[in-house]
Design a protein around this nucleic acid. Structure first.
Lengths: 138, 138
DNA sequence: CCTTGAAACAGGAATCATTCCGATTCACTC
DNA sequence: GAGTGAATCGGAATGATTCCTGTTTCAAGG
């Protein structure tokens, strides 16, 4: 997702345009990886060294709820990345060495839900972990 | 997995037979659900009110490493359950209302790894969340 | 521009799960 | 039944995340 798309969504939902939100979104743009609140904070060091975690988490949560960011739990920590393809359901391979991700278009749900009659499916999580080609070389 | 199987594995690996381990394993036996360290502690209240979280986590981690328990992260918390079918790869449906799980024999990996040439796959996570038939009724 | 109310923010305290650490106790071996 | 390393206890420490309260900033209207 581009920054313009993100801001369009934010403004459609009556969120104000602030410097912090701008910087946070810029940090995520063009990165194909999951990032933590701490990494956001470190990136903000130049721009706004005093930013509070409250502000970071509040905005990350907002972005995630609006579908601007994708969120996942990695080792018990919240991780976020720019929504790579809004509206198109997908999953990720995540490199455990460098953190890079690779989109996986397949979704295992279709062939499986048939076997869960009377169950009310609300969501699912499918992630593959390992080393990306670049990290395998090393 | 039965308690006897669990103890066989523990003794094969030179772990001592202690009261705490016994009580913890009993708590997990015959439960088809994921449980937290806190739930273990509450269960121990009768038997050993003063048990420390250190002891609980140390043992849960040991059990998990030995394949006696299965472990997963749910909302950033470590959750454990008795290994339901040792050696047989499977996944779970997890009820978000009552916590009960249901084994899913299918694994999506076979049909997908083909699309990850040069990637070194180390693991994966696949879980389905929703309401079980009993909780749907309510 | 200037005002103004609501949204956003800073800073620090509080919370919650988990881990670490030093001192003590226990399970197994001889 | 004594010795030894494993296991445990209790409490302090850590790290991520959230809460709280007073202050600042945004953007819409006059």
């Amino acid at each position: 997702m581009t920054l313009d798309e993100a801001w369009r969504i934010l403004q459609e939902n009556q969120f104000k345009r602030t410097k912090n939100r701008d910087t946070i979104l810029q940090f995520f743009s063009n990165k194909d990886r999951y990032l933590t609140a701490l990494e956001v904070k470190n990136f903000m060091a130049d721009d706004n060294p005093g930013i509070s975690f409250d502000t970071i988490y509040r905005n990350l949560t907002t972005f995630s709820e609006l579908g601007i960011l994708e969120e996942t739990d990695l080792n018990g920590e919240r991780n976020f990345r720019m929504q790579c393809d809004p509206g198109v359901h997908h999953h990720h391979f995540i490199c455990t060495a460098c953190g890079k991700t690779r989109s996986i278009p397949h979704c295992p749900m279709e062939m499986i839900t048939v076997n869960l009659p009377d169950y009310e499916v609300e969501g699912h999580k499918f992630e593959i972990y390992g080393k990306c080609p670049l990290c395998v070389e090393k």
